[in-house]
Write a protein that binds this DNA or RNA. Sequence first.
DNA 1: CCTTGACCTTACCATGATTGGAAGGTTTAC
DNA 2: GTAAACCTTCCAATCATGGTAAGGTCAAGG
Lengths: 148, 148
Amino acid sequence: MNIGDAAKASGVSAKLIRYYESIGLIPEAGRTASGYRVYTKQEVSILHFVKRARTLGFSIERIHHLVSLWRDKERASAEVKRIALDHAAELEAKIAEMQAMVDTLRERAASCQGDHRPDCPILHDLENTGGDNRNGQITKTLIASQDR
Amino acid sequence: MNIGDAAKASGVSAKLIRYYESIGLIPEAGRTASGYRVYTKQEVSILHFVKRARTLGFSIERIHHLVSLWRDKERASAEVKRIALDHAAELEAKIAEMQAMVDTLRERAASCQGDHRPDCPILHDLENTGGDNRNGQITKTLIASQDR
DNA sequence: CCTTGACCTTACCATGATTGGAAGGTTTAC
DNA sequence: GTAAACCTTCCAATCATGGTAAGGTCAAGG
């Protein structure tokens, strides 16, 4: 099975398969005498696993961890469960932050006339340099969410 | 006012101020005889504006648009409002996708023993190569969400 | 046996927003 | 007059992914 077949079977592009190999996310594939990568069903399974995990929003780092567990016959389900729940909790935290943004935007938009006058309070609000910072908490959270 | 002071006053790092200038997001700053950038209060306001908009999750492209409107004395509040609401709607779509991921993860985790046995169904599920794809809709949505 | 086309290889470039560093010039304060 | 703290530009790196180019390989058909 060449890389193109593995790509089709797993849904991961050939480019990405090579990249995943280069960063050590998946093991190095075997090679033919002429240098072509060859893949077994087992390796396609790993690729499919990675694909699905990416789709669920797992970071490459976390998938690296999951793949190790998956390849480890002595893996403990407790750790897998913990990783999944950690990821769910992180997603929920981000959801809360994004919801706060949405609320802010909708609130500002509600007080904007929406006509042709140049005094939409959205702009005034963004522009405001005042030092009161009643939104300190939210602002901090949002900034923290901008990593990765 | 040098770039360092403008950075402190606006919360945008000096590096980033130069970058924003290089991509045309903010106008080119004036220069001293020796080449130092100089900033007025007005320009610091723009920087602060950008900072707050970034914090609210606006893309650079969208901020570019907002800054143009802000600098345009004939700006129409209708457009500003529309941009804000568009952005809110996009955020809500992403929130829905993320919530779907969370639901999936929690569902899988609930059926995982969480002990030391190596049979956590989370892994089996990720590994599953079956072609039923009952989640087709969601999967498509999630993939689509990975652009930007 | 040779050509053609579809594959494979590596390597480099690009994205977007941001940070980091290096090498060198300027200003300020002691 | 010198040291520290600033500033300048340029270059590199991040992360996951896509694109392209130059060249090697394989299978089918003439």
